[in-house]
Design a protein around this nucleic acid. Structure first.
Length: 106
DNA sequence: GCAGTGACTAGTA
DNA sequence: ATACTAGCCACTG
């Protein structure tokens, strides 16, 4: 494993409970690499399909789905989030103030 | 090793 | 409110 960043990131994302979301920047900070929000997205992109990481609960700071390549995934992501009870605004955005994940102190 | 890329963010206009 | 810019830094070719 050349990147232990990835495992840290995955570990954090797995802790996001259903019905909540977290931003890339927040994930990076929790993974111990504050400021590396882009690498979080990169790590999730490299995620295998059979992974147990809930990648769909990670969104950008604007509360919107950011996927640049593969617009199809954005559609799937929205369905997954709605299935967990997350409601989108008319803009197609998620109200972060309501669904933002606050990490437990374990 | 260098240049390009990107599932980002914060700032500026 | 939206659009563009700069900074950021690991990964890839």
């Amino acid at each position: 494993m050349s990147s232990e960043f990835y495992e840290n990131i995955y570990n954090i994302v797995r802790q996001i409970p259903s019905g909540h979301v977290a931003t890339y920047g927040r994930i990076a900070a929790l993974a111990g690499i504050p400021g590396h929000a882009r690498q979080v997205g990169y790590a999730l992109h490299a995620l295998p399909d059979d992974s147990d990481v809930p990648w769909h609960r990670v969104i950008n700071a604007k509360g919107e789905i950011s996927i640049r390549s593969e617009p199809l995934f954005a559609h799937i992501q929205r369905q997954l989030l709605e299935a967990e009870g997350i409601r989108f605004n008319e803009n197609g955005k998620i109200p972060l103030s309501k669904y933002r994940w606050i990490p437990d102190l374990n």
